[in-house]
Design a protein around this nucleic acid. Sequence first.
DNA 1: AAGTGGTCTAGACCACGGC
DNA 2: CCGTGGTCTAGACCACTTG
Lengths: 239, 239
Amino acid sequence: MSKYIEIANKIKKDILEGKYLAGQALPDQNELSNRFKVSRMTVQKALNILRAENLVYSQRGSGTFVAKNINLTLKNDQSVEQYVGTTNLLGKDHQILSKIIKFTIRYPQENEQSQLLISEDDLVYDIIRLRVVDKKPYALEYTKMPVKVIPGINEKILQKSIYNYIEKELKLTVGSAFRTIGADKPNQADMKYLKLSTEDPVLEVTQTVFLNNNTPFEYSTTRHPYNFGRISVFVKSNK
Amino acid sequence: MSKYIEIANKIKKDILEGKYLAGQALPDQNELSNRFKVSRMTVQKALNILRAENLVYSQRGSGTFVAKNINLTLKNDQSVEQYVGTTNLLGKDHQILSKIIKFTIRYPQENEQSQLLISEDDLVYDIIRLRVVDKKPYALEYTKMPVKVIPGINEKILQKSIYNYIEKELKLTVGSAFRTIGADKPNQADMKYLKLSTEDPVLEVTQTVFLNNNTPFEYSTTRHPYNFGRISVFVKSNK
DNA sequence: AAGTGGTCTAGACCACGGC
DNA sequence: CCGTGGTCTAGACCACTTG
């Protein structure tokens, strides 16, 4: 592992253990470069990571300080990956089942072609799954994936986790996701599978998910019962 | 301005102008450092910016390539700041009005103290505003702000934009925000002010917003009619 | 004035991909 | 093998804050 990542992790550990308290200054960069026996540039690369994670912030002429709101930042650590992979999100304490409502392979529609950057000849999986957590309906998922990017999907995989298959079996890495979130009235399918009445709102998340190399591999819409929980997002200004 | 930012902007401009097409390789780092007459480290700092913005991605041994999905990335450029400031979000083409439903100053509740990192003696504004866009109710906003961080709020400011006041008058910079998003049934106030019926869902966004130096200055809940639009988020994996 | 972080250099070595 | 990006150095200068 690179030095700067190790240093970032050490400092991070110190912060989480309370060695440096919220709002306090870290040792200055010269001190850190002496302590870790590296050049100052390397220290700065380490601090860059912590700054990007919002654990610390720096003020020229003054110092580098532990963020005043580390607690929130920690919540966010989960939520960056949160929506990518329902199975991972919920941990081991819960019983997660998937009922496959539809599973076919077909040619893509126009909007699917443009979202997944594929041509009309490239086949896509068309998947509808009901996700059930602790015997309560949790989400109704409409997923499209290009076969050539994610080969070998079958019912057995769909019953477990597509994301585990992608990362563990295909050895691909999930990179980023573009999501839009909205509220909606329940439709017929929602009421049937999520067991909602006409007055129960639905939280809908539509996303395109990309691999590390920027290839889109999933275009999906997920509809949740309104009281399933909330979606967390941490947004950094780019100024 | 620093060299690496100027270089990042130049390359960005080239990409946006289509000089380098989606998926194509950029000139390699040595070439760029010759072309811009800077060291390779400086080129790399420039590329770091573009990578963070998801405009390009690099593959060791192979090259640096323009992202295949620049279009989405551009949408995201708006949405990073999207929820911070309704007025800015919607641009000049629309008529935006704010009706002040409540505006008082009081001592904070416990959850407000912990969200805003203030003590029980620090006063907060307690603001409720109805936001109206093109004569249609757009949002019902419940805002709490610490008086000592954002001094001088008055009704005139509330009728326009709090964020303009913070950035232009107080010369403070908005840094980041932590948001949670959920769907809910409408309550009495929603139905009255947003003109909803009992079957119309509400999209609720609760957020804590921070200044550049990590000081929280806003803790708010905003409730939108379900068909007002959607919230966009771009999420990068941190692996 | 002293101490802090931010930028920049010129060169080195390494890890990886593709030929 | 060569060309690519990734890391790292030792030192320099600058910008800013604080006493």
